[in-house]
Design a binder for these strands. Structure first.
Lengths: 216, 216
DNA sequence: CCATAATGACTGTACAGTCAGTCACATGAC
DNA sequence: GTCATGTGACTGACTGTACAGTCATTATGG
């Protein structure tokens, strides 16, 4: 019992250290990009020695993979939780966009490189880990897809290629992240969210003048 | 005269070599990512010695920057040319989407990494070149923006935040590139294009008065 | 006082960038 | 035609450096 408790305490400590290092990794990558992020600098940022990093991670690749994965899971997990609370598909999508954009502020460091430098999704030379990353990404899109599908089922959304629209919506949100990360917009998050929602719901066509000549 | 002609010939030869090396760079990057792309491998791919690369480019960074820049300019240039031929804003957007997606096939190698590993837009440590890249990107979005703005002016598009919709459209297209690069879709390009167009024009809401036919 | 965590000097390696040397070809003299 | 000589494009072995990963040593706390 005492022993089990002791083990647990060690585990907690270990987990805490792991988190600390992963957070430091995110900060360093956000500052220098994947390219310029060395284990030494991560250690410095975490205020530990380089060797210590290797007590918690096998190698550099595992460290960076874990950092990205933790970030994705944190993000999608929180979105999922908050969105699920909403009732109707429309409310859910509203929530989805709002929460996503809000979180982009919280996880600024993480997104700055995850989204701008997303090579982790591409062919990582000899790492099947990348495939798992892709799975996480696809799972999130699938989550969005189901919300929209629900909307179609109950009739608030018109029948259309749901797979595609889920994808487009996700890309649009990602695009907003990017604009923010690059400092290209000063719009408040809520405004971005409502613009996005409006576009996604209504499109850009002038419905009244749909097939007609413009008024001259 | 003879001398001037000789000089011209040398220039042409030089330009040819430069192109060859840049193309090789794209192929290598497509295969190994920016990370795994070394000057040695580029030289190998171009079937020249490593030293030769340095006869045409100051250093690795200049080489890679030039490769990306050439790619962006090729792409946006071709899109611009073809889109400008169309008359109405709707036709122009149709063209934009179609041509973009078609080109993604032509420039497959280039897009595979430009779009999946886009760190070149992010803070390149000590390179103001990155800013120029950003300019090219913004110019393209602005080009789209103007088409949509035209559409609003003549009344086919409803008044809305045009800056945002241009941006969203571009991101949606980029997303399609990505899906293709990752091999996540087997849809023909034309189908992707019409789905995208339909979504962008009409949104997903079920309009109360539906006299609509999907735009194709 | 032992066990475990942490350290940082050290090693090996990969790669950017250099440069002395080679080679292919052009020009011109005979 | 053929040899001599000049030119510069091209080469690849070499150098310096940055960095991943190791491990003998030291600190800590239970």
């Amino acid at each position: 019992m005492t022993k089990s408790s002791a083990t647990k305490k060690e585990d907690v400590l270990r987990e805490f250290r792991v988190r600390e290092i992963l957070d430091a990794t995110c900060r360093v990558v956000a500052r220098n990009g994947f390219q310029g992020a060395t284990v030494e600098r991560v250690a410095e940022e975490a205020e530990i020695a380089k060797g210590t990093v290797y007590l918690y991670f096998q190698n550099k690749d595992e460290l960076f993979t874990a950092a990205v994965e933790q970030g994705i899971q944190n993000f999608t997990g929180q979105v999922r939780t908050q969105v699920t609370e909403a009732l109707t598909p429309i409310e859910k999508l509203q929530r989805l966009i709002e929460v996503s954009l809000e979180l982009s502020d919280t996880y600024r460091d993480f997104f700055k490189t995850l989204l701008l430098e997303r090579n982790f999704l591409a062919a990582s030379p000899n790492h099947p880990e990348a495939a798992h990353m892709l799975d996480l990404y696809l799972a999130h899109i699938h989550f969005i897809e189901e919300i929209i599908q629900d909307g179609v089922r109950v009739g608030v959304f018109r029948p259309h290629n749901v797979e595609a629209s889920a994808f487009v919506l996700n890309e649009a949100i990602r695009g907003c992240f990017q604009q923010r990360a690059l400092g290209l917009t000063a719009r408040p998050v809520s405004e971005d969210a409502s613009i996005l929602l409006d576009l996604f719901f209504n499109g850009v066509l002038n419905q009244h003048q749909n097939h007609e000549e413009p008024v001259s």
